[in-house]
Each structure stands twice: as C-alpha cells, then as structure tokens.
Design a protein around this nucleic acid. Structure first.
Lengths: 235, 235
DNA sequence: CGTGTTAGTTAGAAGCTCTAACAAGAGTAT
DNA sequence: ATACTCTTGTTAGAGCTTCTAACTAACACG
C-alpha cells in the first residue's frame, strides 16, 4: 500500500539505487566508510564511473543514505527487541542484547553511526529523529520501571553527582520534551546509552583484542548496572 | 642526557620530521585524520610533494607517528594527574578529570586513538605498551583502594554479573599478568575505561549536541560511579 | 680535495571525485 | 504512428590524491 503504482522509470531508478547501496555496504563492511569508492562500485556494476552521479549527487549523499539505512535498521532492531507486554527490565535486557548483536554483526555499520564523524559531514535531521525514537523506547521502559517501584528505592539517584544530574536534566530536557518520564529516567536512559556504547565501541574498534578476556561478560555486567537484567541474554 | 651529540644531518632530519608532524597535527585538528594530505603539508612547507617521502615512508607511517604521539601525551597526562601521595579515590578523580579535558582540548586527537580505526591499519606495539601503562595507573589505584577497604564492602562486586566477570577475569588476566591487583580491581579499571570513554566518545563525536544538557554533569556522575569521587573536578 | 650519502627536484603512473558535453534509448503527447 | 522530451548512459578532462623513478645539487667526512 505504501508503494503506489510507479512508472517503470522510477521503478528502475529505485532498483539501481538499491543495487548501488548494496555494493556500497559490501565495501563499507570490507574496508570501512572512509575507503568507499564510487568508481570501484561502478566498475563492479559494469557501468562507467560518472554514471553513478545520476543516482547520487556525490559521495556524501551516498554515505548519508547508508547512515540513514543504518539508523533505520538499528531503530527497527531495538523496537523488535522490546516486546510491548514484557516487564521493563526484560525489555531493557532484550534491547541491550540486541544492540550488541547488531553491532558485532557489522562493526563498520556501527562505526558508521557512532565512530569518527566525517570531516565536513552533518547528520541529516531524520537521523536525529530515529535516534530520538530509540531513546523513547528506553524512556518508556525506565518510566514504567520507576512507576512500578513507586516512591521506593527503584531507580533513585545513587550518588550526589547523580542527584545533581537529575536536577540538571529536570531543567534541560529539550531532547525528551514530549515524554512524561521523570528526570531520573532520563538519567538512566542516557547511562544505558553511554555505558553500553562504551563497551561496544571499544570492542568493535579492537581495543580489547590481545587482552585475553571475553567482552561479552563485561557487557553483561554493564547491562546489569543499567537495570537491564532479564533472562534473554543467551538467546 | 638522552640526546647525545648528533651529527648536524640527523639534527636537521629530526627537526624537519617534527615540523612535518606539526603541520600534520594542524590538519588533523582542522579536518580529522582521514583528510590528512601529505601533498598539502609539503605545499605549506614550501617543498615539493615527494620530498616528504624522505622523512616518512608513506601516509600510514606519518599517522602511526601521530597516534604514538597522542598515546604518549595521554599517558603523560594521566601520570601527571595521578599524584603519587594522594589517596586512590583522589587519583582516580584527577585522572578522570584530566582525561576529559585532554579529549575536549583536541577532539580529533582523541578520535585518532579511540575513533574508527583506519582500514588496513594495525596499532604499533608501542601503542599497546603505552595503553597498558595507563591501565597500570588505574590498577594501582583500585588495588590500593581495595587494600584499604580490607575485606569490607569496598569495591566488591555489585551484582551476579559482576561476580561472574570477576571469576572470568581471575582466570583471563593476560593484559594484567604482572600486576598484583585482584580481579575486582581489574573489573573496576575496565569499567573506569569503558564508562568514561562511553561519555567522552559520544560527546566528541557530537551525539549530545542539540540535546540541551551539559555532558560535564553526566561525566561527573559516571566518574562517581567508578569510584573517582575526589574534589578536583572543578580545577 | 675526492667521494659517498642525503635532500631536494621534476616526470609520471594510477587512483580518486566530480563536471561538461554529447549520443541513444524510453516514455509521453499529439 | 510520429515527434518530442526527459533520462540514462557514454567519453573527455580538470584537479586532486599517494607514491615511484630518475636525476641533480649540496653537504659531511676521510
């Protein structure tokens, strides 16, 4: 229903664009985004270099498309992991587990989003929207967990610094303006993000190689520390 | 004393190498390592492109030199922050604070080490050595904190996952083989690294821009969470 | 004062992104 | 059915990159 009847021209155009992106992903997976070559893609497809510029204005536009695809895929993955009926802790654990699997399945895809930004490159607005959507899933879970715990311990701040951060977030929550979650939920969602990203990004960049321990256990510990302690870890 | 009497040739050579690296750092700071151009550096220095290849075998070797410089500088910074006589918590707090300042002072320098690795690039052994040196500072602090706390709570594992990680690290500690710190100290040192890196890397990559909160407070909270709770934060 | 090493040069190969100008096909309108 | 337009491909080429080859000039040393 989404794809109305399209003229064969635009059908062909979209098909070629997808084929170009497929080759681009293969290159990204092999050598990383910085080494992506439009010329090489054209050669692989049996067409001439400049022909690609009919489908993408320039290299940056192609990379932007890849970035958006990655964000969309990550967003879908998180959404699929967070089963609506499940208790919040289970959802958080499922998302944490899915996040790492998603990153390890294609490290360069993860780095395309969270790695070194390209020099003059600015992320498109849709990327921000998609990132916000993932944040909403986290906020939903933490808000629900907070509500269940009532006024009891639950996710209350664990230190003076956390209290100060909560106060600050209560006043600076532009990114979660239209979400009813309390400041402590914002803090915990941010912490979920930074702690899990901390482990994943060092792992995919290879900083743990040669150290001899299993990053999965470190990841599990960090997942636990952000309240993502369900039973889905070994699925 | 370290620099013995050198012939004018090697003196000149080293001087030019340093000048090249200085220009390279300027380029890295401006546009990031991926856009570093040997040709542009040569033009800035008023010499011809291929002349640079007398001083660096190729682009990778220059980047490797920059990476090593960055590691050396980071190592020195951490060592300088951890004042020997201070209590371990104070040293950890000072290192945490110095780490963030070091990263924000030159974001691209941080990304050169911890960002997306270059495709075919392998970090030189000396980089690993320097990274291990920083780890030793952390292990020293956590081991000392552990000893002070005796068998009491202190830095004991906070969850089942942490206990499992401790057990695993006790058996897989190749990276800290010659350090007497207990497994819990290894765990806490790793956590120091991943949690602080999680915040810093997202901040320098610009993922917090537009969200409207102050990353410094999030960083302070994470510093606290790894036992780096001294009074040096606002120095 | 020769002699060998070293630092620079220019020329050029092979790659890249991207623009300009042109040929040929596909779809559409008359 | 014919004519027209729009799109997709082509080749040529500018300008950038890394990096090699061959050559010259200067410097340090025996």
């Amino acid at each position: 229903m989404g794809d109305a009847i399209k003229s064969p021209r635009v059908r062909y155009r979209e098909q070629v664009r997808e084929e170009i992106k497929a080759h681009a992903w293969a290159q990204v997976a092999a050598t990383g985004a910085s080494a992506l070559s439009l010329n090489a893609i054209a050669k692989q497809m049996g067409i001439s270099g400049p022909a690609l510029y009919r489908y993408f204005r320039n290299r940056d536009e192609l990379i932007t498309e890849l970035v958006l695809d990655a964000y969309r895929d990550l967003s879908d993955t998180c959404r699929a992991a967070a089963t609506p009926g499940d208790p919040p802790e289970t959802r958080l654990a499922a998302m944490a587990s899915a996040l790492r699997r998603w990153a390890l399945a294609a490290p360069h895809r993860y780095l395309l989003i969270y790695g070194t930004p390209v020099p003059g490159y600015a992320a498109p607005p849709e990327a921000t929207t998609l990132a916000a959507g993932i944040m909403t899933l986290l906020l939903d879970a933490y808000a629900e967990a907070d509500a269940e715990a009532g006024t009891a311990a639950g996710g209350g701040p664990a230190s003076d610094a956390a209290t100060a951060l909560d106060d600050h977030l209560a006043a600076h929550r532009r990114w979660a303006a239209d979400h009813p979650a309390p400041a402590s939920a914002l803090r915990r969602a941010l912490t979920f993000w930074t702690r899990l990203h901390g482990v994943i990004s060092l792992e995919v960049a290879g900083h743990f190689t040669g150290m001899g321990f299993d990053p999965a256990l470190l990841y599990a510990t960090e997942s636990d520390s952000v309240g993502a302690s369900g039973e889905v870890r070994s699925r």
